[in-house]
Design a protein around this nucleic acid. Sequence first.
RNA 1: GGCGGCAUAGCCAAGCGGUAAGGCACGGGUCUGCAAAACCCUUAUCCCCGGUUCGAUUCCGGGUGUCGCCUCCA
Length: 465
Amino acid sequence: MSIQIFNTMSRQKEPFVTLEPGKVRMYVCGPTVYNYIHIGNARPVVVFDTVRRYLEYSGYQVSYVSNYTDVDDRLIRASKERGLSVPEIADQFIRAYEEDTDALNVMEATIHPRATRTMPEIIRFISQLVAKGFAYAVDGDVYFRTRKFADYGKLSHQSIDDLKSGARIEIDERKEDPLDFALWKKAKPGEINWSSPWGEGRPGWHIECSAMVEKYLGDTIDIHAGGTDLVFPHHENEIAQSEALHGQTMARYWMHNGHIQINHEKMSKSIGNVILVHDLVKKYDPQVIRFFILSVHYRHPINFSDELLTDAVQAFNRIKTAAYNLTHRLKDETVQKPDHAIEKIYRDRFAEAMDDDFNTANAEAVLFDIVRDANIALQDPDAPAGQLLAYRRVLYELSDVLGLKLNDSKAGILDKEVEALIERRQEARKAKDFKLADALRDQLSEAGIILEDTPQGVRWKRADQ
RNA sequence: GGCGGCAUAGCCAAGCGGUAAGGCACGGGUCUGCAAAACCCUUAUCCCCGGUUCGAUUCCGGGUGUCGCCUCCA
């Protein structure tokens, strides 16, 4: 069974066939860097990073391009408000983006282009559209001639007329049609700008993606992805620009993730319920946030709340604890040969889940299957090491495909003092002086060290992990 | 008005023609000196009404509820 991907264009799952065997060209719309990213921004980043990881795990070589929109209205506004230049704001929040996504264990994109550094390609792209009659300049602005692109609306499955009737935009008399959108915007006095054949200005929102896709990946790519709100107008407009110019399919598969909601409401500034990753990671282990995001199929909405995150902490702990307990059990083991048959069982189930349009909820369920089976094996003092090794290895391997780090500092180094206390407690237990033993355990507990007695000796962990 | 998603146990969430994965929480038990971790058991007529079918949570029609997109919001 091959990988099946739900394609927004056809509204159904399709077998994934790449343009070039073994290679995937993938573009994911990135953030506008005028502020810290919120969890809604984080979802596509995590989801499509996981898609990429699974494709690579499946043997594909993936070129993963994701842009930074580093000039637009909001950046200009932030620049005015804060008395900083647009590039200064952009630099600040690109750094912040990198910190946040690092925390979420997101792999670095193959290329992370910035709009302001793709200016020659953007301008050339627009010029060619003008030359072909798909765009026209008016008073320093350049607009795309929507009517001329016959397929306009094919991604969002809307006809031009339907779109027009629902349009809630101001009529701009200079545009030939209300649905025409800006490729180039004339600079207002004092605004950051670039020189172009139409005067000083800056690119419209949609054109940078078309130009970057063309520049870094080619005229047709395999996967183009982003949040569901980008279907219209952003991706629709990208298609119009790119396909009008190149005369060929822009992307073979269009993937869109559902939104995150707060108490079943849209997250938005006006409601005041925006949660920044920057803040959330102070409260929750970023791995838990990632685990939580992946616990729901990517196309469905996710509701966010402290209760749900707290449940996720417990759930993820179950996996981490099992991993840790396996490691502890195997720490003195010299056998190095895992039971491959066991590994295969879970790998197959995992692949089955992920092949089905990246069903990470089911993939996580496979992790829990491993955990349960491993825990049962751990109950058995005579369980073969090869079996335990297999559980441990496959658990780490599959968690890694989901980008979930199980390793932490749990098994760090103990103070000599703490070690001595544990040793004293063991002696007390041997002497059946349980009162002293419990007192020592309490003392350690207050210091944040939790002890667990096992047939293989004392196991310890830190309370905050 | 146009287009679309969702509705499954206390909560979260898979499944999508053959009477329901997984997780969290609750209760009972086992193991343990006591704990912890873990294991076992227990918990669902799948929003409503029709239809198709030998058989529907799963397909079709109609409701109801809910969330979203329709020019710069992931």
